[in-house]
Design a protein around this nucleic acid. Sequence first.
DNA 1: TATTTGACCAAGA
DNA 2: ATCTTGGCCAAAT
Length: 110
Amino acid sequence: MNPLRSKHSFSVRVLTLTSRIPRGRVSTYRELARAMGTKAYRAVGNALHANPHAPRIPCHRVVSADGRLGGYGRGPKVKAALLKREGVVVRAGRIMQFQRILFCFPSRRG
DNA sequence: TATTTGACCAAGA
DNA sequence: ATCTTGGCCAAAT
């Protein structure tokens, strides 16, 4: 199935896309929204907040559009630790080498 | 049905 | 650089 444009609920599309972010990379709330063809940045954050229940979904890899860490249900310390475990360095609340490790979703087809 | 609430964002001051 | 403001939109009230 394709989470872009699909008839799934908004939150399922968000979670599906999030699950595709590779280890050691990050994406952003804005990028997820863009991949789905919407500007619902805040709703993307809400969907991730409501659904961290699935350890299957690496929601710690979704950060703010400006390279800041962004939110996390269990706190920014935990989010930073999970990222560090994958080789992503967070210093002073910012993702190091942000542009370099930023993962963007293919815009059309796959 | 209407209002409120956010793990957001961009532009101003 | 930090803070405020207005805008965004799905979900939960």
